[in-house]
Nucleic acid binder design. Structure first.
Length: 894
DNA sequence: CACCTGGAATCAAGA
DNA sequence: ATTCTTGATTCCAGG
């Protein structure tokens, strides 16, 4: 049985892909929103549009059902409709608003676009067992997540869904129907369950909201062998738990192919079975998800990003979609607006921007007049972008985690808590508030180019033991495990995070989930996300969030991939001969430094190994002689270089510029051959960064380092924190740092960001953001730029996530505060930057390289470039002329 | 004894 | 179709 299901499941997943939708206008808007959201999110979330919300509330990336819709690309979705769905609604209600959205969506009708399939077990009945593979843990989590994803697809029909949603959940502000978008809807009763039961407490409100109603408690995945209560509860859900951390592997290794669904299932892990049958979620989620998730998400993604992360299989890129997206100018905005209205908020201008959620999504609707940042009850979905600062309050990650942390499998014992580069543990602090204890939520988020959302393949894990001094409680929100840690006035509202480990869920388990659009392979980077709810006068809670730098979680990646931290110079004459000093980690004796120039089509036009000058004994630094460019040129030529430890062990490509003569620092950026990068090319390389596998760096690569200064793409990452920082603060509207755009992530990030911009019809906000950010336009995109920056190029960890996520809302603008400025969302990336800096070492090290390769699968990810931004004009934010080329997008499909 | 870790064997997926 | 490399998981063993 299981096997069957399992297998089917996959199919299901496929199903989603199938979705074909002709996006209605609404869709478009949605799409736009989505896009914007993504953009935002990527950027680390711009508060900007409420769009995000859709996207993912909760961790479910997918959740964003709305998103799906947004995407609505014409796609065919196959969804099974589970009767259950209905159930969810109710549950949802219980849950929180967030849930609503999800739930609502799920159920929501799938109007036109989707094909409804009977719940065929094949499609993953929950009962059936969802993913064969799914291990308990994974399942539970995953499923949730996936469900979320599915949700997204659900979204496809925004309309219907909305309505439904409205019906379903809306009711309660809090509770929204929710189902958690992602998860919730999905089916994961578990989550709800847990929430209800487990978290009734304080946070619970918040937490619970997320959760999707889980019918049976059990569901909770329990995975972790560990002990936390939570887990247990989870465990319950999950059939077997391993007695000890190392169970004998029941199944033995699983085959990726899932071929062995059974095999797995046997393993306790596996299906948690989970969900018993029922997994509550199963039904709903699955169904819904099944078809659509991918689709839903896809659209968003499609817009630009999606590709990146989305597994090829899931992707659905359709040109149409793009078209939609692109077509509309600000579709995104529109939606947002809508949402905004609901939320009320103009006042909250800023907040709104960030948080606005389409009405459909009404998770927890803020009270009228209330800023979106404030919530009375349920916490915002985990995938919602939130600022790290508001008014006087600021949540900062004072000590970043190391860029590398080997996650443990369920079959293993804990590998301890995430550690700081310095040897201690990450430290999080809430500034500006110390009246009473507040709860800090911590979960594992993605580190890819897309918007920040709970990671499908990793879950936070509560570490216990004598070395743990920080008390915390494990909870489950939606499909995501969350640690709740108190921030006490007596501790200065700070906490050392020594109780948070990272659990790796098996890829197969997760990928089989319906609706899951992300792929686990090479998706081993995460960011630690911290959220706090600060009590406000009116009884509402102000939610702030900050994220860590990207953390590589795989044993191998952490050890093998060269990761570049900085290099200098970033340009030289075409004659070469200068020394190029590169610092980073995992630079081995056999490391090579290769310069390459790619053509627009992605083909390698020129490639040359740089002669190594330094002793190779060093593992942190390598000095090479810059090879001469192969031909004369009258304008700066941008090439890339990467450090290679072997075929597939290449660092992320970094940008390097050959100058015609003396270095005139032309704004390299602009100048240089953007042509090369033109969208099209990228496609091949898709893999954005150089994933190890992908050899050639694609355009993406191009983006790399230097780029930072120039390329938008890279920029984010690359910018030295310091540099950016200043700019970040741009007063007016929101200034998003470029970083924001960037995603910590990997290569893709860079790409994305730009792409995102381009693609999405930028909403005004967005555009503003970009501009404000001081972002330097990527070369590609922008023409004139500032002079070349510093000689030494610091490569932010790819994702220095920090930047990404954090944005601050200036009080002014913000509603809550004194002013709710409308426009103003200022995102100061400050915090971001700051954080980034710290981590640098670590982050830098690991992240960069990893990022690149990482995860994003080459294939899947279309390069941003591919998307085709041709040009973006940034005028102070006012204009973004973006012309997109979607070509690729369309093509990408699965 | 329960945790943590680091290292590596094994197998599947990809190239 | 086959072979090699890379990535994912599971096991082991030592601290």
């Amino acid at each position: 049985m299981l096997a069957d299901r399992n297998w089917k499941t996959p199919t299901q997943s496929a199903g989603p892909d199938l979705d074909v939708k002709a996006p209605p206008s609404s869709t478009q808007t949605l799409a736009g929103q989505l896009l914007s959201q993504e953009l935002q999110s990527h950027p680390s979330y711009f508060p900007t549009t409420g769009n995000y919300q859709h996207v993912g509330s909760e961790g479910n990336q997918y959740n964003t059902k709305g998103n799906p819709r947004a995407f609505d690309c014409p796609s065919i979705q196959i969804t099974s409709i589970a009767p259950n769905n209905h159930v969810e609604p109710s549950d949802n209600q219980v849950v929180s608003a967030v849930g609503e959205a999800e739930g609502g969506y799920l159920e929501a009708s799938w109007p036109r676009d989707q094909l409804y399939l009977p719940l065929d077990p094949c499609y993953r009945d929950p009962a059936l067992c969802p993913s064969p593979c799914s291990s308990l843990s994974s399942r539970s989590w995953m499923s949730d997540l996936s469900s979320c994803g599915s949700i997204s697809h659900v979204y496809d029909d925004m309309d219907g869904e909305l309505r439904d949603a409205a019906c379903l959940a809306l009711g309660s502000p809090l509770g929204s129907p929710l189902g958690s978008p992602g998860c919730g809807g999905g089916a994961f009763g578990v989550e709800l369950w847990q929430q209800k039961y487990q978290h009734p407490s304080a946070f619970s409100p918040a937490l619970s909201p997320y959760q999707s109603p889980r019918q049976s408690p059990r569901q909770s995945p329990s995975h972790s062998p560990r002990t936390s209560v939570t887990e247990e509860s989870w465990l319950n859900c999950r059939p077997t738990s391993r007695p000890s951390s190392r169970p004998t592997s029941p199944c033995g290794k699983r085959r990726h192919s899932s071929a062995d669904p059974y095999a797995r299932s046997p393993s306790p892990h596996h299906s948690p079975s989970p969900t018993p049958g029922t997994s509550p979620r199963g039904s709903v989620t699955d169904d819904t998800w099944v078809g659509s998730p991918a689709g839903a998400l896809g659209p968003l993604l499609m817009s630009g990003f999606q590709e990146l992360d989305v597994p090829s299989k899931t992707r659905r890129t359709s040109g149409s979609q793009l078209g939609l997206l692109t077509g509309r100018g600000d579709p995104g905005l529109e939606p947002c607006q809508d949402s905004s209205r609901e939320e009320g908020q103009d006042k909250d201008g800023l907040a709104v921007l960030f948080l606005q959620v389409p009405s459909h999504f009404s998770w927890n609707k803020p009270k009228p007049g209330a800023s979106p940042l404030f919530r009375t009850s349920s916490p915002p979905p985990l995938d919602w972008p939130l600022p790290n600062q508001y008014d006087q309050c600021e949540l900062t990650l004072e000590v970043q985690p190391r860029s590398y942390h080997r996650a443990h499998y369920e079959t293993e014992g804990s590998r301890g808590s995430i550690k700081a580069a310095t040897g201690g543990y990450p430290v999080i602090k809430l500034n500006g508030y110390s009246e009473q204890p507040v709860s800090l939520l911590l979960f594992i988020g993605t580190a890819d180019d897309r918007y920040l959302r709970p990671h499908s393949f990793y879950q936070v894990h509560r570490v216990t033991g004598k070395t743990v001094t920080t008390m915390c409680q494990e909870k489950v929100m939606g499909c995501t495990k969350v640690l709740e840690i108190p921030l006490l006035p007596e501790n200065n509202m700070a906490a050392s995070i020594d109780c948070a480990g990272i659990l790796k869920l098996r890829n197969a388990d997760i990928e089989l989930k319906k609706g899951e659009t992300d792929i686990g392979r090479k998706n081993t980077r995460v960011r630690v996300v911290f959220r706090v709810a600060v009590p406000h006068l009116d009884g509402q809670m102000l939610w702030l969030q900050t994220v860590s730098i990207p953390v590589e979680c795989s044993q191998r990646s952490g050890q093998d991939l060269p990761q570049l931290e900085s290099f200098s110079p970033n340009s030289c004459s075409v004659d070469g001969g200068q020394e190029l000093v590169i610092t980073g980690s995992n630079i081995a004796a056999q490391s090579r430094v290769v310069f390459v120039e790619k053509g627009p089509d992605g083909r390698t036009l020129w490639e040359m190994d740089a002669r190594v000058l330094s002793e190779k004994s060093s593992v942190t630094r390598i000095v090479v002689e810059i090879p001469p460019y192969n031909k004369k040129t009258t304008c700066p030529v941008q090439v890339q270089f990467y450090v290679s430890n072997g075929k597939r062990r290449r660092s992320v490509p970094q940008c390097f510029t050959y100058l015609p003569e003396v270095r005139g620092h032309l704004p390299v950026a602009a100048g240089v051959k953007q042509e090369h990068w033109e969208p099209d090319l990228i496609s091949h390389n898709a893999p954005g960064f150089c994933s190890p596998s992908s050899d050639t760096p694609s355009h993406d690569q191009v983006l790399s380092s230097d780029v930072a200064y120039y390329d938008s793409c890279d920029l984010p990452l690359r910018y030295p924190a310091s540099h950016n920082a200043p700019r970040l603060y741009h007063p007016p509207p929101s200034s998003v740092s470029f970083q924001t755009l960037m995603f910590p992530q990997t290569s893709s990030i860079p790409l994305q960001s730009p792409s995102m911009l381009s693609q999405t019809p930028l909403s005004p906000h967005q555009s503003l953001i970009a501009l404000n950010t001081s972002i330097k336009p990527p070369q590609t995109f922008i023409s004139s730029q500032t002079p070349v920056p510093p000689q030494i190029t610091t490569i932010p960890p790819q994702g220095s996530s920090v930047p990404l996520q954090s944005f601050t809302i200036s009080p002014n603008t913000s509603s809550g505060g004194p002013c709710r400025g409308q426009s103003a969302v200022s995102q100061s990336s400050t915090s971001t930057f700051i954080t980034a800096a710290d981590p640098q070492k670590d982050s830098v090290l690991s992240s960069p390289g990893q990022t690149l390769s990482i995860k994003q699968e080459p294939e899947d990810q279309p390069n941003l470039g591919s998307l085709g931004l041709q040009e973006i004009t940034l005028d102070d934010g006012k204009n973004l002329g973006v012309s997109l080329i979607h070509k690729k997008v369309c093509g990408l499909v699965l």
